[in-house]
């Protein structure tokens, strides 16, 4: 995919606003309260898993990375990232599973499992308050272009692109919902509709469903590329993990 084939030149929404600014009072209250936010149950679990030995190595995450509060600070704000070993774009979920397979010598966690959500949220929370900061360079340029292409291309029976809702119509109403700018900065989030925690890829799949398009699998290249584009697009917004959304 080349730049000239894009439906539009990549642009960030102006003014840049987090989804929490479009949320109602109840959702904002839940996200702000570190005890009563239901998302914190996954943080508690993530912290336990971080310190629990796993696999043949009998090593815990903490065994190598020590205290996540120090070692993981700001890390998720720079993801997704190209892994130097495989030269592939990797998000936090992928990075955790890579560590499990390579270093802990155990099976990867299933995408959307409580365990992977808990660890992803726990790692992500250490960057809470840090601005999203991904750099587009020759290594991830192709992923960025593909992600942008998905964002600006009409799809599904509704024949809509991401940009139609999240660039042109944010702040306006869709039934009773206020359309957000579609940023990934609070993920994983506790979504009231899900009644549980969920990943960015689950949310993206829900959007694909919304426009009646074919759903790319969670963890697929399409969604990873889109995740990178979204991270670039939300550059400067602060990480809110673990967020709460309607």
């Amino acid at each position: 995919m080349t730049a000239s084939a894009l439906a539009a030149e990549p642009k960030r929404p102006e003014p840049l606003k987090s989804g929490i600014d479009f949320s109602g009072a109840e959702v904002r209250a839940l996200q702000q309260d570190d005890f009563s936010s239901p998302a914190m149950l996954w943080i508690t679990r993530g912290e336990k898993l971080w310190n629990e030995p796993a696999g043949k190595s009998e090593k815990s995450c903490a065994g190598c990375h020590q205290d996540a509060r120090a070692s993981m600070k700001g890390v998720s704000a720079k993801y997704p990232k190209v892994d130097p070993g495989t030269a592939r774009l990797t998000n936090i979920e992928g990075r955790i599973n890579q560590c499990r397979e390579r270093n802990q010598q155990t099976a990867p966690l299933r995408y959307e499992s409580d365990e992977l959500l808990a660890l992803t949220a726990y790692v992500g929370m250490q960057s809470r308050g840090v601005p999203v900061n991904v750099v587009i360079d020759p290594q991830n340029q192709r992923n960025f272009r593909r992600g942008a292409d998905i964002f600006y291309t009409r799809m599904g029976q509704m024949n809509l692109a991401c940009t139609h809702c999240h660039d042109r119509n944010f702040g306006r109403k869709l039934l009773n919902d206020t359309i957000s700018q579609g940023h990934g900065n609070p993920y994983p989030v506790y979504r009231l509709e899900w009644q549980t925690m969920g990943s960015l890829h689950r949310r993206l799949r829900a959007c694909f469903f919304g426009v009646r398009a074919e759903l790319p699998p969670a963890g697929s290249q399409d969604l990873l590329d889109l995740e990178l584009f979204l991270a670039w697009r939300s550059q400067g917004l602060i990480v809110e993990t673990p967020g709460v959304r309607k």
Partner: peptide, 13 residues
């Protein structure tokens, strides 16, 4: 009680 516009039936789990 209001209904959501972007109902998620993507059935990931």
């Amino acid at each position: 009680v209001t209904e959501t516009a972007c109902l998620d039936a993507s059935d990931i789990t």
